[in-house]
């Protein structure tokens, strides 16, 4: 067995009548940070939702730690060690910040407890000042910190961030990138979608580009930057 945490092989998925994923293959190694890029509507979110069990895969396989997880329920996947920070953050508006965190707290796969409530609050001091606030009273940046902190409290092996810094002011976005850096150093594998090509390339070990439901590039970020023509047609930059 390789040291791959995730193996996606020839994955297809349909949204109603439209064929969204056309045979996606993707591996994520342990501790690796993978950037998932592509224009809107190319299938990034669908791929993520397949990994999370929120959208059914029609064919192909998804393996996690070598085990087939394609037909498992979302809550089972979460308990196996996949955590999700969705586009739009997914904060529970009718729960306080503290409750948002406590609800998620659980030992990870094989009982690991690296991320505790206290450690998350130490890593996100902003949240500490907002514990009794309702989820809807937070700013966008605080919501994203809460969403990431909450995901970490499930002690995952893989953290998926969809649109990690979307809609955040540059300074706040910088905070989020440094938090992602902390997550990376703690050894958690991450799959990140974001519009900020530069910041994303800097932090990732690998870049994966999707076009029309398929992977067209899967290599190091430095190799991607060497292809300006493709960058323009794939990503518009």
């Amino acid at each position: 067995m390789t040291d791959a945490l995730v193996n996606v092989t020839d994955l297809h998925s349909h949204y109603g009548l439209s064929h969204v994923l056309h045979g996606v293959s993707l591996d994520i190694k342990r501790g690796e940070t993978v950037a998932l890029m592509g224009r809107n509507g190319m299938g990034k979110t669908t791929l993520i939702k397949c990994l999370m069990g929120l959208v059914p895969a029609t064919s192909g396989s998804i393996r996690f730690r070598g085990q087939d997880i394609k037909s498992l329920a979302t809550h089972v996947l979460a308990r196996r060690g996949i955590a999700y920070v969705p586009e739009g953050r997914g904060i529970f508006k009718n729960l306080s910040v503290k409750e948002n965190l406590l609800l998620a707290a659980r030992p990870g796969f094989e009982g690991r407890m690296e991320w505790t409530y206290d450690r998350v609050l130490d890593s996100f001091p902003r949240l500490k000042e907002r514990l009794i606030y309702g989820g809807q009273q937070l700013s966008g940046g605080e919501q994203q910190m809460l969403s990431i902190g909450r995901a970490l409290l499930t002690n995952p092996d893989l953290l998926i961030l969809d649109e990690a810094t979307e809609g955040l002011a540059p300074l706040i976005a910088q905070d989020i990138w440094s938090i992602i850096g902390i997550v990376k150093r703690s050894g958690i594998s991450t799959l990140i979608v974001d519009k900020n090509f530069k910041a994303l390339s800097k932090i990732s070990n690998r870049s994966v580009v999707m076009v029309k439901g398929g992977v067209v590039f899967d290599d190091s970020p430095s190799k991607l930057i060497e292809q300006p023509k493709e960058l323009k047609s794939w990503l518009g930059i």
């Binding site: 999370m52 809550h75 979460a78 969705p86 529970f92 609800l103």
Partner: peptide
């Protein structure tokens, strides 16, 4: 805790599942 799960499920069902809760 059950009450928290109930309120969370009311607010965002997908996210509740994604945190490992059997909604």
């Amino acid at each position: 805790r059950l009450g928290m799960m109930i309120r969370a499920g009311e607010s965002d069902r997908e996210m509740t599942k994604s945190l490992g809760i059997n909604i």
